[in-house]
């Protein structure tokens, strides 16, 4: 009798401790690295806190928030109407927190005469409808299409924002294993076009204006640059200021949090 009481007490204690020191995140593989870096930083600062980050995709993140299996859902897009409706019916009140912005500059060789393209032109180049630079106002030169490998989040972002769901990259496109690799190929190849994270654009390549807007932190934050998107963390209701969830999301507004976001290659929220 005494023993079982003790056990019950212990279990109760554990449950209380868990509720305060445990945070579960699920969702986008794009936001995942930010959440993981935040979790690592936060757990080092506050030993005893346990934060788990799963990356099962934005859709599954929304589902997890709906079912209450995660505290924070990471999404690389906003909630769909159907998802909002389902949450409303279940009494879940999604609150969005923009933690960072994601942008992909389209880069070409510095000698390329083309200054900018429309989003449609970029899509047509990557799907193989436009194959020569002269078709978009450049020199008579074959376009060498360079993509990140399908393994990368960068590729996923590009696919989502430029290609759309049903379009495939042309089969003669070259694939390169890193952002640096794409930049290096573009530097050396006169007819090349590629895309890489904002942090990888330097003077050795030319970043194109898309729909007349040059990619930079400012145009991304103002949501004018088309190949960019906000990255969200969703909570069920606004978390109270002293909760772990609020502190965790609040990291994105701190100087160190912004540094972490930049290190991973995203644009912090100003």
């Amino acid at each position: 009798m005494k023993g079982s009481l003790l056990v019950a007490g212990l279990v109760a204690c554990c449950a209380v401790a868990q509720a305060q020191d445990k945070l579960t995140l699920d969702g986008s593989t794009t936001v995942g690295p930010i959440a993981k870096a935040f979790a690592e930083f936060y757990m080092r600062q506050n030993p005893g806190v346990n934060i788990t980050v799963s990356e099962s995709g934005s859709g599954n993140g929304a589902k997890a928030l709906l079912n209450g299996t995660c505290d924070i859902a990471n999404l690389s897009r906003n909630l769909k109407d159907a998802e909002r409706k389902a949450m409303e019916e279940k009494g879940v009140k999604p609150v969005e927190h923009t933690v960072a912005f994601d942008a992909l500059p389209v880069i070409v060789h510095p000698s390329n005469r083309v200054k900018g393209l429309t989003l449609e032109q970029v899509r047509d180049i990557y799907t193989g409808k436009i194959t020569n630079w002269k078709e978009v106002g450049g020199a008579d030169q074959r376009i060498v299409v360079i993509s990140r490998d399908t393994n990368s989040g960068t590729y996923e972002t590009f696919k989502d924002l430029v290609l759309g769901k049903d379009n495939k990259i042309l089969e003669s496109a070259e694939y390169t294993g890193s952002n640096g690799g794409v930049r290096q190929r573009v530097q050396m190849t006169r007819g090349a076009i590629g895309y890489a994270g904002l942090g990888f654009v330097d003077r050795t390549v030319k970043a194109l204006e898309i729909n007349g807007v040059a990619p930079c932190a400012e145009s991304v934050v103002q949501k004018r640059y088309p190949i960019s998107r906000a990255l969200f963390m969703f909570t069920n209701g606004e978390p109270a200021a002293d909760t772990l969830a609020a502190k965790f999301i609040g990291l994105s507004k701190t100087a160190r949090g912004k540094e972490i976001i930049e290190e991973i290659g995203f644009v912090p929220v100003p």
């Binding site: 074959r142 070259e174 290096q184 050396m188 190849t189 006169r190 007819g191 090349a192």
Partner: peptide, 24 residues
């Protein structure tokens, strides 16, 4: 990547028939 590829890209110009090697 850094030696052969640029070499091939430039080689196209002075090859007979002026073959365009778009990507090395």
């Amino acid at each position: 990547l850094t030696v052969v590829a640029p070499f091939l890209q430039n080689a196209g110009e002075w090859l007979p028939g002026n073959i365009e090697i778009a990507s090395g």
